[in-house]
Design a protein around this nucleic acid. Structure first.
Length: 252
DNA sequence: GCGACAG
DNA sequence: ATCTTGTCGC
């Protein structure tokens, strides 16, 4: 995919919040979503206490579910996780992966919120503004807003409200299972966002795109861990003590 | 000041 | 998000 640089990423948390307020003004949710035959999912994983991020994009055909393309990226974290500023941590590696993508998806389903965000600029809205294609926020939990739990049957919904404004929809994708938090990211309506998420989640709680990306990104990380254990860049302290100290006199 | 807080 | 075994329920 090809897309222009929207802004730089060398920001403080304060600057990031200011940028969100600025960019949120330009969010355009005018529905421009046509056919949904090519869906994309994106996910990130990392080792606890590590700053290395593993990112994966999975593109699938629908309704066949066939995987059309995947892209993996390993990158160092450039921004920490701060609630409300998730996109500044996750978008840099995602954008690298999307640049390498040969297939242009009809819609991207993101892990996290779209406009259901304190400044109406969650990760899906931010990604959509960069890519210029329809995106949907589909979080497993709530960032902000109030709601009444939807009825138990799959397909039941309940509006996610921030005071008097609707910012998303709480959607039950499996009967009796915890609902998802769905909101428009870019170029989609509330209704379309819900429709797409329900379509992409026929059997499990999470959309197939999210499940596939989640599975693959964890394989990527675990394989990297195994490779690192097999041929470490630097031997661990215990096994290297003798080698490292062989020409170093002991202290008195 | 206190509680909440996507991944 | 990650760590982590078994277990309760449809």
């Amino acid at each position: 995919m090809n897309f222009p640089e929207l802004h730089g990423w060398d920001l403080s948390a304060t600057e990031a919040v200011a940028l969100q307020r600025e960019l949120a003004q330009r969010v355009d949710l005018t529905p421009r979503l046509g056919d949904c035959r090519i869906l994309a999912g994106a996910d990130i994983s990392y080792n606890k206490f590590s700053t290395t991020l593993y990112a994966t994009i999975v593109v699938i055909a629908w309704p066949s579910g066939d995987v059309l393309e995947t892209q993996d990226v390993v990158a160092e974290q450039t921004f920490p996780y701060i609630p409300g500023l998730l996109s500044f941590r996750e978008l840099p590696p995602f954008l690298t992966a999307f640049r390498r993508l040969q297939t242009v998806p009809d819609v991207v389903i993101c892990d996290g919120q779209g406009i259901a965000h304190p400044r109406r600029f969650g990760v899906a809205a931010h990604l959509g503004m960069w890519l210029g294609i329809p995106t949907i926020g589909c979080g497993k939990s709530r960032l902000c807003g109030t709601f009444t739990p939807p009825d138990l049957p799959r397909g039941s919904t309940s509006p996610l409200m921030d005071h008097d404004q609707r910012i998303g929809t709480v959607v039950r994708t499996r009967t009796g299972i915890n609902p998802l938090f769905v909101s428009p990211g870019h170029a989609v309506s509330h209704e379309q966002a819900v429709e797409v998420v329900l379509m992409a989640s026929p059997k499990y709680r999470l959309p197939e795109t999210t499940r596939l990306a989640d599975h693959r990104v964890n394989l990527l990380r675990q394989q990297a861990n195994a490779a690192a254990a097999e041929s470490p860049a630097y031997p661990d302290a215990d096994s290297s003590e003798n080698l490292l100290n062989s020409d170093t006199p002991e202290a008195d």
